[in-house]
Design a protein around this nucleic acid. Structure first.
Length: 497
RNA sequence: GGGCGAGUAGCUCAGUGGAUUAGAGCAUUUGGCUACGAACCAAAAGGUCAGGGGUUCAAAUCCCUUCUCGCUCACCA
């Protein structure tokens, strides 16, 4: 009894707090979170889904905790593929390079595929492509202009997807950004005695990585043809993020198949003295998205699924579900309401299905499961929230006007719910440390379950005072906790559904 | 062959400072709307935690080993 009084007091205290009693950190850091890095001229696909969802989620959590978060997309906007594309456009579709409005990204990616084909087949075209790269690097005006048009076009298309997914604004800092720093990055490695030449390529030999014969393995930072590669840009980025951005923590939500790559560049960054004990560079690796067959998700023809298609499919399925549900309940809702609900629920379901799984393991992508109204899914949580709002509508209650009334906890379901509400702060601490958002999902799912049990057992609007107000506060706090928790996952709520 | 990761209920998964009879959800069976939205709740059933060793008063968890699966191993990103 004493204990339940104390818990009731704690709830009364957080009731007037927008942050629900969660104090910001006393040690704010500057943190960089990597966002998906699509290649310019190619459409975003399923391979970008997890890093978008996880990156956004981690960013929001860290920001809420009080850190200064910089979201950066390391887009592929430089190098041979670019030369290829520009060479091809100059030859086959020159007008595209003067008027950007004529092209959309779909067409551009078609051109890209054609360019790739020609590149593989035609030697003279290879030379033209390399020439275009050279022109790009030397700043040839016409080539740069073409490059900008292509980048802008791609960028616009990405923003549409980001908007649909509800991602925050992102700084696009592509590979081209680091171009001016590549040479000096290598010079620095050279000065430190880390650079060696092997088979014509410049490399840093790695500690702890060997090939079949037991020889130590190199990280190639300048190819034998003189070109730079992925590792070079990433090293330049590490250096820049430490020195210029003053980042204390850098998080890369990238698939676990790139585990070696990150271990390697972090090692080199450390040996170069860029990464010190004051810096925390983390590869927040994640597993594959598998199809129903348990194999890596892709289209029937074996290609990567376009992100837009995947999201649209989720939304379309919700729309159908809603239509049949409303028909069955003889509810009439506006088209606008249905469209909006379908979009929020569809996107939420995709995100939640991803985040509710342990980040490091593979997971099976199933529309049926993620859109299920029961179980640990977005719709279940959204429904719990909607139930509370339903109370407000039914009883004409303005939760903000409840004041700081006492919360009295007599029933076991009330006490269980109350205790659970107070645990969010602790969960967030764990997630800040381990970067595993599924713990928030589990927390919110259990919160919703406990709310539903409470709702089932305890009348609210028909209760006598002071229980009535107390229960209203409990319901309101539940809803606000769900709303806050979901917003940290990058998910919006609905007032009705 | 080397490195990394995984193997927990029929299915999808939690469980990552070792501690009472291993937890959810889905599916299955059963019960609950003349109560605030039943898109809910309650109950039942279901597991030699891949196999084998070891450390410990105590192991799904730590160590060793075997098997199975996935990812990856110098000029792609």
């Amino acid at each position: 009894m004493l204990k339940s009084n104390y818990i009731g007091q704690l709830l009364s205290q957080i009731q007037s707090d927008e942050r629900l009693g969660i104090a910001p950190t006393k040690n704010p850091q500057r943190i960089i979170v990597d966002y998906p890095s699509p290649n310019v001229a190619k459409e975003m696909h399923v391979g970008h889904l997890r890093s978008a969802i996880i990156g956004e989620c981690l960013s929001r959590i860290l920001e809420f905790i009080g850190h200064d978060v910089l979201r950066i997309s390391h887009i592929g906007d430089w190098g041979t593929p670019f030369g290829m594309l520009i060479a091809y456009l100059k030859e086959a579709y020159p007008e595209a390079l003067t008027a950007s409005k004529n092209l959309n990204l779909g067409e551009l990616s078609t051109f890209y595929r054609q360019a790739k084909k020609r590149f593989d087949e035609d030697e003279s075209f290879q030379n033209a492509s390399r020439q275009a790269v050279v022109e790009l690097q030397t700043g040839d005006e016409e080539t740069i202009k073409a490059w900008k048009i292509v980048c802008e076009l791609s960028s616009r298309s990405y923003r549409q997807i980001y908007d649909l997914m509800g991602l925050s604004s992102i700084v696009e800092r592509g590979e081209s950004f680091y171009n001016p720093f590549l040479a000096e990055t290598l010079q620095e490695l050279d000065r430190l005695g880390l650079l060696e030449t092997s088979e014509g390529a410049m490399c840093v030999f790695l500690e702890g990585f060997t090939n079949r014969d037991g020889d130590s393995l190199p990280l190639i930072v300048k190819k034998s043809d003189g070109g730079y590669n992925y590792a070079t840009t990433d090293l330049a980025a590490i250096r820049y993020r430490v020195r210029e951005d003053k980042a204390q923590r850098v998080i890369y939500p990238v698939g676990s198949e790139q585990n070696n790559h990150f271990t390697q560049i972090f090692q080199v960054g450390r040996r170069a003295g860029w990464i010190t004990d004051e810096h925390d560079f983390v590869h927040a690796e994640f597993g594959l998205i598998l199809g129903e067959d348990g194999k890596k998700l892709k289209t029937r023809s074996g290609e990567a699924i376009r992100l837009k298609d995947l999201l649209d499919e989720a939304i379309a399925r919700v729309r159908t579900d809603l239509a049949t549900r409303f028909a069955a309940e003889e509810r009439t809702e506006s088209q606008e309401f249905i469209d909006n609900s379908a979009q929020v629920i569809g996107i939420s379901a995709v995100k939640y299905a991803d985040l509710s799984q342990n980040r490091t393991s593979d997971y099976r992508f199933s529309y049926d499961k993620m859109l299920d109204l029961k179980g640990n899914t977005a719709p279940y949580l959204l429904y719990a929230y909607v139930r509370v709002q339903g109370i407000s509508r039914k009883g004409s209650i303005d939760f903000q006007q409840l004041g700081n009334a006492n919360v009295v906890l007599a029933e076991t379901t009330e006490l269980a719910l109350a205790k659970h509400i107070l645990q969010l702060a602790e969960i967030l601490q764990d997630v800040e440390r381990d970067l595993l958002p599924n713990r928030i999902c589990l927390y919110l799912f259990e919160l919703s379950q406990k709310f539903n049990q409470f709702y089932d057992q305890c009348p609210i609007l028909q209760a006598d005072e002071p229980q009535r107000t107390s229960r209203l506060i409990l319901a309101d706090l539940t809803a606000r906790t769900i709303k806050l928790g979901l917003s940290l996952l990058g998910i919006n709520v609905l007032e009705r559904m």
